[in-house]
């Protein structure tokens, strides 16, 4: 849920990166962190296990400049992907303004992608959101690997609603900012509608 502060002239929004375990959510945030001028971002916080698996969430605050004299700030979060962390995922989705669904392109991860997408829809519904009225984009990550799901199949199976979608190699940054830009845009357009 966005926070509009007329006093400090700031617009704050929350974006969540969702997707199955190891699809590259944390890698997306790390790349954004690395490539953003320190003046425009805060510290990246990772609540992770010793083996670097996300335990609760990663958090990266970004400020993207002014719109009509208002500073825009985006809080990026990732969810833990493993199935048994569902309670944490629900908490992180609270108050979300926009979602980036990161899919893992490896053929053997297709079932995990579908399961995670269904899980996201169910968790959104539980909080009164519906996938058809919340801004979201899809990122097909790990396109550098050999055994990837063809794009057409991805679109047919995961992107039935025709959300903006992007191919990416988060490990090297390909598609990372395109994805971010698309979700920021959708979130601001939604805000503009005044829901």
């Amino acid at each position: 849920m966005s926070f509009i502060n007329y006093s400090s002239r700031e617009i704050n929004c929350k974006i969540v990166y969702y997707g199955p375990g190891l699809c590259g959510k944390t890698t997306n945030l790390s790349f954004i962190f690395k490539k953003t001028n320190p003046e425009h971002r805060g510290k990246m916080i990772s609540l992770a296990t010793e083996t670097e698996r996300t335990l609760f969430f990663d958090f990266l605050p970004l400020s993207l400049g002014d719109i009509k004299g208002f500073k825009t700030r985006f809080h990026l979060y990732t969810v833990p992907g493993q199935i048994f962390y569902d309670a944490s995922r629900k908490l992180i989705l609270k108050g979300v303004d926009g979602i980036v669904f990161v899919a893992d392109s490896q053929i053997e991860r297709m079932d995990a992608n579908i399961e995670s997408f269904e899980n996201m829809k169910a968790n959104l519904k539980e909080q009164g959101y519906d996938i058809s009225n919340i801004p979201y984009v899809i990122q097909y990550n790990k396109r550098d690997l050999a055994n990837v799901v063809p794009l057409a199949e991805f679109k047919k199976v995961l992107n039935v609603n025709g959300a903006p979608d992007f191919e990416a190699v988060a490990a090297t940054g390909v598609g990372v900012f395109e994805t971010l830009k698309a979700i920021v845009k959708l979130v601001l357009i939604e805000l503009k509608k005044g829901t």
């Binding site: 966005s2 108050g95 959101y129």
Partner: peptide, 15 residues
């Protein structure tokens, strides 16, 4: 949307 945006104005911010 389940909740509307939180909005803050100058007057309440001062208070």
């Amino acid at each position: 949307m389940p909740t509307s945006s939180l909005v803050m104005f100058e007057e309440e911010f001062k208070q």
